[in-house]
């Protein structure tokens, strides 16, 4: 099993949470909300392109909605492979945390 890096995992989850509404700006803002960092959040684009290259997410050009410059907006969605990956990460985390019910 190939492991994802932490930022890739966060990104996959963010795209999953945003569902139909995941595009560049909204993904970045979701990551900012989730992690609490603002300044370095621009660095999401390198892992995002890696996710795309590895087949975990795919892009879709919106027909109706356009961005500020009048160009079609690019939306990101998970591929079946991406969803499977996310589930397996969740499983893994559950198993790993099961033995540590309370961190005290």
């Amino acid at each position: 099993m190939q492991f994802l890096s932490r930022i890739e995992e966060i990104l996959l989850l963010a795209i999953w949470k945003l569902k139909e509404n995941a595009f560049g700006i909204s993904i970045r803002e979701q990551v900012e909300r989730d992690t609490g960092t603002k300044w370095l959040s621009g660095a999401i684009y390198a892992p995002l392109s890696r996710l795309k290259k590895n087949g975990y997410v795919k892009t879709k050009r919106a027909q109706g909605s356009t961005n500020m410059g009048g160009r079609p907006r690019i939306y990101y969605t998970l591929t079946p492979l991406g969803e499977k990956k996310l589930r397996s990460i969740q499983e893994l985390n559950k198993v790993m945390w099961a033995e540590v019910p309370d961190m005290k």
């Binding site: 700006i25 392109s49 907006r73 690019i74």
Partner: peptide
């Protein structure tokens, strides 16, 4: 696609 997202 990436270009368009980043630019926006």
């Amino acid at each position: 696609d990436m270009y368009s997202s980043i630019r926006e």
